[in-house]
Amino acid sequence: MSAPVLDDLQVGQEIGRRELVVDRARLVRYAGASGDFNPIHWNERVATEVGLPGVIAHGMWTMGAAVGVVADWVGDPGAVVDYQVRFTRPVPVPDPGAATVQVVAVVGQIDAGARTARVDLTVTCGGTRVLGKAQVVVRLG
Protein backbone atom coordinates (compact mmCIF):
# COMPACT_ATOMS: atom_id res chain seq x y z
CA MET A 1 0.00 0.00 0.00
CA SER A 2 1.35 3.43 -0.91
CA ALA A 3 1.48 6.36 1.48
CA PRO A 4 -1.54 8.67 1.45
CA VAL A 5 -1.25 11.91 -0.50
CA LEU A 6 -2.50 15.08 1.20
CA ASP A 7 -4.08 16.47 -1.97
CA ASP A 8 -6.19 13.32 -2.34
CA LEU A 9 -7.82 13.67 1.10
CA GLN A 10 -11.18 15.19 1.95
CA VAL A 11 -12.57 16.25 5.30
CA GLY A 12 -15.02 13.58 6.43
CA GLN A 13 -13.24 10.80 4.56
CA GLU A 14 -12.91 7.58 6.52
CA ILE A 15 -9.32 6.34 6.37
CA GLY A 16 -9.62 3.23 8.50
CA ARG A 17 -11.40 1.19 11.11
CA ARG A 18 -10.37 -1.60 13.38
CA GLU A 19 -11.59 -3.82 16.19
CA LEU A 20 -9.13 -4.27 19.06
CA VAL A 21 -9.55 -7.22 21.40
CA VAL A 22 -8.18 -7.08 24.93
CA ASP A 23 -8.29 -9.87 27.49
CA ARG A 24 -6.80 -10.23 30.95
CA ALA A 25 -3.63 -11.89 29.63
CA ARG A 26 -2.98 -8.86 27.40
CA LEU A 27 -3.42 -6.59 30.42
CA VAL A 28 -0.80 -8.55 32.34
CA ARG A 29 1.63 -8.34 29.41
CA TYR A 30 0.97 -4.61 29.06
CA ALA A 31 1.52 -4.08 32.79
CA GLY A 32 4.90 -5.78 32.50
CA ALA A 33 5.90 -3.75 29.47
CA SER A 34 4.70 -0.41 30.85
CA GLY A 35 5.50 -0.86 34.52
CA ASP A 36 1.89 0.05 35.41
CA PHE A 37 0.94 -2.61 37.94
CA ASN A 38 -2.05 -0.74 39.39
CA PRO A 39 -4.30 -3.56 40.70
CA ILE A 40 -7.41 -2.11 39.01
CA HIS A 41 -5.95 -3.63 35.83
CA TRP A 42 -5.72 -7.19 37.19
CA ASN A 43 -7.53 -7.57 40.54
CA GLU A 44 -11.34 -7.76 40.41
CA ARG A 45 -11.76 -7.12 44.15
CA VAL A 46 -9.66 -3.96 44.15
CA ALA A 47 -11.31 -2.66 40.98
CA THR A 48 -14.84 -3.07 42.35
CA GLU A 49 -13.85 -1.67 45.78
CA VAL A 50 -12.87 1.61 44.12
CA GLY A 51 -16.18 1.79 42.23
CA LEU A 52 -15.19 0.34 38.86
CA PRO A 53 -17.35 -2.26 37.11
CA GLY A 54 -14.45 -4.72 37.36
CA VAL A 55 -10.94 -4.94 35.98
CA ILE A 56 -10.34 -2.28 33.33
CA ALA A 57 -7.85 -1.90 30.50
CA HIS A 58 -5.02 0.58 30.94
CA GLY A 59 -6.01 3.90 29.40
CA MET A 60 -2.62 4.15 27.77
CA TRP A 61 -3.09 0.71 26.20
CA THR A 62 -6.38 1.90 24.69
CA MET A 63 -4.79 5.13 23.47
CA GLY A 64 -1.76 3.37 22.00
CA ALA A 65 -3.74 0.61 20.31
CA ALA A 66 -6.21 3.09 18.80
CA VAL A 67 -3.55 5.22 17.08
CA GLY A 68 -2.33 2.09 15.28
CA VAL A 69 -5.11 2.58 12.73
CA VAL A 70 -3.57 5.91 11.70
CA ALA A 71 0.05 4.72 11.87
CA ASP A 72 -0.80 1.79 9.59
CA TRP A 73 -2.70 4.04 7.16
CA VAL A 74 0.10 6.60 6.89
CA GLY A 75 2.74 3.86 6.65
CA ASP A 76 5.22 5.59 8.94
CA PRO A 77 4.59 6.07 12.68
CA GLY A 78 7.11 8.94 12.56
CA ALA A 79 4.60 10.90 10.46
CA VAL A 80 2.43 11.27 13.58
CA VAL A 81 3.38 14.71 14.89
CA ASP A 82 0.70 15.12 17.57
CA TYR A 83 -1.79 12.86 19.33
CA GLN A 84 -4.21 13.86 22.04
CA VAL A 85 -7.14 12.16 23.74
CA ARG A 86 -9.43 12.54 26.72
CA PHE A 87 -10.11 9.41 28.73
CA THR A 88 -13.91 9.43 29.03
CA ARG A 89 -14.91 5.91 30.14
CA PRO A 90 -13.07 2.78 31.23
CA VAL A 91 -12.85 -0.39 29.13
CA PRO A 92 -14.08 -3.23 31.38
CA VAL A 93 -12.34 -6.53 30.61
CA PRO A 94 -14.38 -9.59 31.60
CA ASP A 95 -13.03 -12.87 32.91
CA PRO A 96 -13.46 -15.13 31.14
CA GLY A 97 -13.63 -13.40 27.80
CA ALA A 98 -12.39 -10.17 26.30
CA ALA A 99 -13.46 -6.63 25.55
CA THR A 100 -13.68 -5.35 22.01
CA VAL A 101 -12.80 -1.75 21.26
CA GLN A 102 -13.93 -0.27 17.94
CA VAL A 103 -11.89 2.48 16.26
CA VAL A 104 -13.06 4.56 13.31
CA ALA A 105 -10.64 7.12 11.83
CA VAL A 106 -11.92 10.06 9.76
CA VAL A 107 -10.11 13.07 8.28
CA GLY A 108 -11.18 16.02 10.44
CA GLN A 109 -9.06 18.84 9.05
CA ILE A 110 -6.50 19.47 6.33
CA ASP A 111 -3.77 22.12 6.51
CA ALA A 112 -2.28 22.37 3.03
CA GLY A 113 0.29 24.98 4.12
CA ALA A 114 1.70 22.79 6.89
CA ARG A 115 1.19 19.60 4.83
CA THR A 116 -0.72 18.02 7.72
CA ALA A 117 -4.03 16.31 8.23
CA ARG A 118 -5.87 15.88 11.49
CA VAL A 119 -7.49 12.48 11.85
CA ASP A 120 -10.33 12.21 14.35
CA LEU A 121 -10.78 8.87 16.07
CA THR A 122 -14.06 7.55 17.39
CA VAL A 123 -13.12 4.93 19.97
CA THR A 124 -15.93 2.93 21.57
CA CYS A 125 -16.48 -0.20 23.62
CA GLY A 126 -19.95 -1.71 23.78
CA GLY A 127 -21.37 1.37 22.07
CA THR A 128 -19.89 3.76 24.67
CA ARG A 129 -17.20 6.24 23.74
CA VAL A 130 -14.07 5.47 25.78
CA LEU A 131 -11.76 8.13 24.32
CA GLY A 132 -13.02 11.62 23.67
CA LYS A 133 -11.57 14.27 21.39
CA ALA A 134 -9.08 11.73 20.09
CA GLN A 135 -7.14 13.59 17.42
CA VAL A 136 -4.02 12.59 15.52
CA VAL A 137 -2.05 15.03 13.39
CA VAL A 138 0.05 13.50 10.61
CA ARG A 139 2.50 15.16 8.25
CA LEU A 140 2.17 13.98 4.66
CA GLY A 141 4.42 14.46 1.68
Rank of each mutant, 00 (worst) to 15 (best):
R29F: 05
R17F: 07
R24A: 11
S34A: 15
Q109T: 12
V74L: 04
G54C: 07
L121N: 08
V119T: 08
E44I: 02
V106W: 08
I56M: 08
A65T: 08
R29S: 15
F37W: 14
H58D: 06
R18S: 13
Y83C: 11
S34Q: 13
W42H: 15
L131W: 00
A79D: 05
Q10F: 03
V101S: 01
T48K: 08
R118C: 09
G126L: 12
A47D: 10
G127T: 12
V138S: 04
A47V: 02
G51T: 04
Y30K: 04
V137T: 15
M63S: 09
S34H: 13
R24Q: 12
V5N: 04
V67P: 05
G68I: 00
E49N: 11
G141E: 15
N43W: 05
V93S: 11
V130F: 03
I56A: 01
P4M: 08
D8I: 02
Q135R: 14
A65K: 13
G108T: 08
M60F: 15
Q135Y: 00
G127K: 11
T116F: 02
R24M: 06
A71G: 02
A31V: 10
K133M: 00
P53Y: 01
D120G: 10
V119M: 03
G126F: 12
A3K: 12
G51C: 02
R26Y: 06
L131A: 01
V50L: 03
V130H: 04
Q102G: 15
G132V: 03
Y83G: 02
L9E: 03
V70L: 12
V21T: 15
D72C: 03
A25E: 14
G127Q: 14
T100E: 09
E44V: 07
V28I: 10
V11W: 06
V70I: 04
G12K: 07
S34M: 11
Q13D: 07
R115G: 09
L27C: 08
V55E: 12
G54F: 06
E19H: 11
V67G: 01
T88M: 07
T116V: 10
K133G: 13
V93L: 03
D120W: 01
A114M: 02
L6T: 10
C125Q: 14
D8V: 03
V104N: 12
P92W: 07
G59H: 09
A25D: 13
D111E: 13
A31P: 07
G113W: 05
G59Q: 03
R29W: 11
Q135I: 07
W61P: 01
A117V: 03
R115D: 06
W73N: 04
G68E: 14
V85M: 09
K133F: 03
W73R: 13
T88P: 13
I56K: 00
G78D: 15
G75T: 10
G51Y: 00
V123D: 08
D36P: 00
Y30E: 11
R139K: 14
M63Y: 10
